[in-house]
Computed example of a mutant assay.
Amino acid sequence: MTAPALTTTTAALLVSADGHYLLHLRDANKNICSAGQWSLPGGHPEPGESLDDTIARELMEEAGLHIPGLVPFAVVENTDADDRPTSRGQVYIGTWDGDPALLPLTEGIMLRFTDVEQIPYLTMDPGTTAVIRLHQEGPSPDGAAPDALPVLRLRDAGTKTVPNVIGVHLYLERDGKILLGLRHSNSAYAPLKHHFLAGHCERESAIACLIREAQEEAGLVIKAEDVELVHAVHLVDAPGAQPRLQLVFRARTWQGEPQVLEPDKCVSWSWWPADTLPEPTVAYTRAAIDGIRHGRLYTELGWA
């Protein structure tokens, strides 16, 4: 059997003085690696170019960044179903404390500093997640030789069990109108789009998550006995992205009026007629509302 072609890439793990990581949101709906996912800036070497020169060039071309003192940190190796390497990426590490919003980004959607606690809630490139986890586990090497770098081996997502993220959403209807929030322009997910009150399950049941998020995000008090599951959306945002199961619960009764308690995530709450939802609204939010109105319990989105 012929061995798969081995591609080589570079990437940079840039860490601020306060321990935040500079992440790059890649374009979605394109035939590129990690489409629609948060990853590390970097790229492929040109013919005859060293990896050290490659990462320096890519940072400058993509974002106008010149980072002195970059050193090799780790190697990310992807394998196929037979555990044979298909690609290797050398990751460099360095420090930077500038403002990502001021960078002249030429590729992808945006650059932003991200706290490690936010990582589980983002659609992340698996290699980036593994590199950040390695960095969290201990001190980085000081210019280690390439053959002495730790190697992070990642098997193709199609050949192993893939965890699905569980999202919980609140469906409130009053006088024929549905409660939606307008997400902040700097939100990591769906900026400037309308969306359910929602959150990710932590170490808790889905209904416990719903009750907590309703209180934290909008000051609404909901009781478990007043909640029912009305729709589920199983979706994948892009090829290779982590699958997500979005559970939508209706609260038949509640206490309080919606308040903006997390202004960095949501800037307003409004009631919208079900047949004239605002633009833009998150696609799976629309799909769930349509399913609820037509008595369907389940929708799939993004699966080929």
Rank of each mutant, 00 (worst) to 15 (best):
M1G: 06
T2C: 00
A3G: 04
A3N: 12
P4R: 11
A5C: 00
T8K: 07
T10H: 07
T10M: 04
A11K: 07
A12L: 01
S16D: 07
D18C: 07
G19K: 03
H20L: 01
Y21H: 14
Y21V: 11
L23H: 08
A28H: 10
N29Y: 10
K30V: 14
C33K: 07
W38N: 10
L40D: 09
G42K: 04
H44W: 11
P45T: 09
G48W: 13
L51N: 06
L51P: 08
D52H: 14
D53Y: 12
T54N: 10
T54S: 13
R57N: 08
E58Y: 12
L59D: 13
L59I: 09
M60N: 13
M60F: 15
V71T: 15
V71Y: 12
P72K: 03
F73I: 00
F73Y: 15
A74I: 08
V76N: 01
V76C: 03
D80K: 02
S87R: 02
G89H: 10
V91H: 01
Y92T: 01
Y92V: 02
T95K: 15
W96S: 05
P100W: 13
A101S: 15
G108N: 07
R112T: 13
T114Y: 13
Q118H: 13
L122K: 11
G127A: 12
T128A: 04
V131L: 00
H135M: 09
P139V: 14
S140V: 12
A144V: 06
A145L: 12
A148R: 07
A148V: 00
P150S: 04
R153C: 07
L154S: 06
D156R: 01
A157V: 01
G158H: 08
T159S: 13
T161Y: 14
V162N: 11
V165F: 04
I166T: 12
G167K: 02
V168L: 00
L170Q: 04
E173Q: 15
D175V: 06
D175T: 08
G176W: 05
L179R: 05
L180S: 04
G181H: 12
L182V: 03
A188V: 01
Y189A: 05
L192Q: 12
H195N: 11
H195W: 07
H195G: 03
L197W: 14
H200G: 06
H200T: 15
E202Q: 13
S205T: 14
A206R: 14
A208D: 15
I211F: 03
R212A: 04
A214L: 03
L220I: 11
A224P: 03
V227N: 03
V227L: 00
V227Y: 05
A232Y: 00
P239A: 00
Q242G: 01
P243K: 09
P243V: 07
R250F: 01
R252T: 13
T253E: 10
T253W: 11
T253F: 02
W254H: 08
Q255V: 03
E257K: 12
P258N: 03
V260K: 07
V260H: 01
E262I: 10
E262L: 05
D264Y: 09
C266G: 00
V267N: 00
P273N: 02
T276E: 15
Y284H: 10
R286C: 14
A287N: 14
A288I: 08
D290A: 15
G295T: 12
E300F: 04
L301D: 02
G302T: 05
